[in-house]
Design a protein around this nucleic acid. Structure first.
Lengths: 145, 145
DNA sequence: CAGTAATAGTTGATTTTGTAACCAACAAGG
DNA sequence: CCTTGTTGGTTACAAAATCAACTATTACTG
């Protein structure tokens, strides 16, 4: 990425990833924070339930690669706000099944629409192939660990 | 990014950016954290000074898009560790010029080598064109705000 | 110049995250 | 069964990020 005696931060992929991610997140965050006072962790939990239906906290953690304490706190907040319901699993009484309440679904539907719009806005200016390639590269990068 | 009634988190660019950025950062962080007990903010300040030479805190903030409190605290830590020197600007006595001490440069050189290696490792598996395109797209995304 | 606004940087209070210890429920082996 | 180990999830405490208020200095305006 550099010649002998230079180092260009603007070419360093982890740095670029952070800059781009921060910019996009900060920007997008204003919507769910402003509208529903939600944090990013909460947004993520809400979306996982909106998309995949019922899940346990652990499953969400595995999928989203979030630490369980983050999820625990997000679940608490979302439950307080009546966005999600928790039901103990009778087969294994340690875990509970989480799902959206009707209220939660309304919020999810709203934020989902915004997310789609935002994604569209973010990727306009790039060709379809470029966006496709970007997505697959980001997925690949997210796997490495 | 989605059909009528589906939403795929795995295609949502802000989410992908975050996942990839978090993965890369967490991974890479272990080096400078483990070796020098440095935080990401400190790493960034160190690198800006290593690359661009003398700068003021505000300039770093503008370039790196970091809030000034983060920089202020990072500068304190780095100064305590004797990695950087601060000199008041005589023309404008509010600001100070920051630069690396010889010790700081040793650390920078070390971490810079690691960064280059890490970047290489991260991007192997992708074609050169793809990486180039990725970088330029990430730069573009980082600009939007 | 005096007075007000703007800028560089710091500090303190609040919020959020990360780390580790913890409790309750289950699993497996003797 | 009973001990030991594991897993799902919570809680307490420490580290860090965010936000607002503050000091010191410079810039602008009448």
């Amino acid at each position: 990425m550099t010649k002998k005696d230079e180092f260009d931060l603007q070419l360093f992929v982890p740095y670029l990833l952070n800059q781009a991610a921060e910019q996009a997140s900060l920007d997008f965050q204003q919507v769910y924070k402003g509208r529903y006072g939600m944090l990013r962790t909460e947004w993520r939990v809400l979306f996982h339930l909106g998309i995949y239906g019922e899940m346990t906290a652990t499953e969400i953690g595995d999928r989203a690669r979030m630490h369980k304490t983050k999820i625990s706190r997000a679940v608490q907040k979302l439950t307080e706000r009546r966005y999600l319901a928790r039901v103990r699993d009778d087969a294994d009484r340690r875990s509970e099944w989480l799902s959206l309440t009707p209220q939660g679904r309304v919020v999810y539907d709203d934020l989902r629409r915004v997310a789609e719009e935002y994604d569209t806005a973010l990727t306009t200016g790039f060709s379809v192939q470029d966006v496709t390639r970007l997505r697959s590269m980001l997925q690949a990068l997210a796997q490495r660990g």
